[in-house]
Design a protein around this nucleic acid. Structure first.
Lengths: 156, 156
DNA sequence: CTTATTGCAAATGATTTGCATGGCG
DNA sequence: CGCCATGCAAATCATTTGCAATAAG
């Protein structure tokens, strides 16, 4: 229940952001947005989003998906990630939410998330030490998720 | 003086690594290797390496450069980086040297490096907390280098 | 000798772009 | 109504691959 109203709020919210930036509120853009609000957790590629949108809006072009993702990422509504599989992956990023980082499994490719408190102090220290003004950071850990660790032990 | 002998050692060292893995020591591979040992510090793209090799070995093909970079990165002799400019960038990575991370300037594109002591403990903690076995990590800070900060203040 | 390696050209795969048409504000 | 947005197809761009010729061990 609280989930639904939260989703609705987010949707209206993003629509306003688009309007404020003089972007038109086309059905294609709305559909893509809804996909993210419904999925919530996934790290979707452009092609995956394209496939998910098609049932709702069959005439959409892949180029439109790319153009929309660009806009949403520029506005900070989506986070564009590179997990090293050759395509960009997008996830919904609630405003004001401090962005998280990723644990990428080298065996099954699953991606999980973690928040960083410690990284804050590391960032401050490094910025000071190098006279470098940090505006964003990316932290990824590659390794094996717990499930894959078990399966590897079993096979060995 | 100590620099030259160090370079020579590194060269012989890498040649041995190739031999140990049953890779042939072709002149193309040797030339590419020397480029890295001479440059030392740069973060070179495949195309840039190709251009640097050509004067020494005009008939080399770009595909060979890519293939060689793959091998050297697999052996841990080179570190393959993604700085978000759409091409991979390689740097020489002395064996036994704990790999460093990057400060990427959003204005001038310069890349500087820093080492991480604190990240170690962060890694341990996160691994424990998430039952995730970490084998590698990537940490990048995006922001403005000291030079660009000055220039931005001047212009403003 | 024997097989890994090479150069070339063609293939790939994600993303971008030109352009005429269509639709939001 | 004007101009942004769209769909389509063609263009890009980095990287990969098939293949016959070549060379390292």
């Amino acid at each position: 229940m609280s989930e639904r109203s939260q989703e609705t709020d987010s949707f209206a919210d993003v629509c306003n952001q688009l309007r404020n930036h003089a972007y038109k509120l086309t059905p294609q853009r709305q559909t893509i947005l809804k996909i993210f609000l419904e999925q919530g957790s996934g790290h979707l590629s452009a092609e995956e989003i394209y496939q998910l949108v098609k049932p709702h809006y069959p005439d959409i072009g892949l180029a439109t998906v790319y153009r929309t993702l660009d806009i949403l990422a520029d506005l900070g509504i989506l986070q564009k990630n590179d997990f090293g599989d050759g395509r960009s992956r997008y996830e919904f990023s609630r405003r004001d939410e401090h962005h998280h980082h990723h644990l990428i499994c080298l065996r099954c490719g699953s991606v999980s998330e973690f928040d960083d408190d410690l990284l804050e102090s590391l960032e401050t220290m490094i910025a000071k030490r190098n006279k470098f003004k940090v505006v964003d950071h990316v932290l990824k850990f590659y390794g094996y998720c717990s499930r894959c660790q078990e399966e590897l032990n079993r096979d060995a």
